[in-house]
């Protein structure tokens, strides 16, 4: 039942928004790693930061949509359909509990990265400490999304919602 209302919401949450965030990470990270003053011309730096501003803001919006749909629309379905399983098994004691919480780290970290890139723009090429911090936060956002996504996929496999 791929397209029942519950399954569709779970697919939009995980397979659409969650997957977009995870796939976009590599592009954003390459852009951040390329932000060196000595590697780019002024025009190149301007073009790269413009792409990064658009890309990281888009990722932040996608991350917010993912957690909001997951928390307010999909998770209540699991609680309704699998209350007894969720309250007594591994799926609630570890998987679902960790997934619902750690996923929320992603939009906060992604928004922080987006705002700092948007504010500093080409100045980031000369600010290596800020750049390094953003690279780590961006990677932590990706890891949090990856853990939530993996646990979500396993949970959906074991307990599909309809």
């Amino acid at each position: 039942m791929l397209f029942s209302s519950g399954a569709l919401l779970a697919d939009i949450h995980g397979l659409v928004f969650g997957a977009i965030f995870l796939l976009a990470y590599s592009g954003g990270m390459v852009g951040l790693l390329d932000l060196h003053a000595s590697w780019e011309t002024r025009k190149g730096r301007r073009a790269l930061t413009k792409q990064l501003v658009i890309g990281t803001w888009a990722m932040a919006v996608v991350a917010w949509l993912t957690v909001l749909i997951g928390t307010y629309l999909v998770y209540p379905l699991y609680r309704t359909e699998f209350q007894s399983v969720l309250s007594s098994s591994f799926w609630n004691t570890f998987s679902m509990a960790l997934k619902t919480h750690i996923g929320w780290f992603t939009p906060i970290l992604a928004t922080t990265v987006a705002v700092v890139i948007w504010r500093y723009k080409t100045q980031l090429t000369e600010e290596k400490h800020i750049r390094y911090a953003l690279e780590v936060l961006f990677t932590l956002a990706f890891l949090a999304a990856g853990i939530a996504g993996l646990l979500g996929a396993l949970t959906t496999k074991a307990l599909p919602v309809y």
Binding site: L109, V116, R119, Y120, Q123, E127
Partner: peptide, 14 residues
Amino acid sequence: KIPNGEAGAAILAA
């Protein structure tokens, strides 16, 4: 130039 305090505030708040 924007001082790095602005970035520091955003990073620590996260």
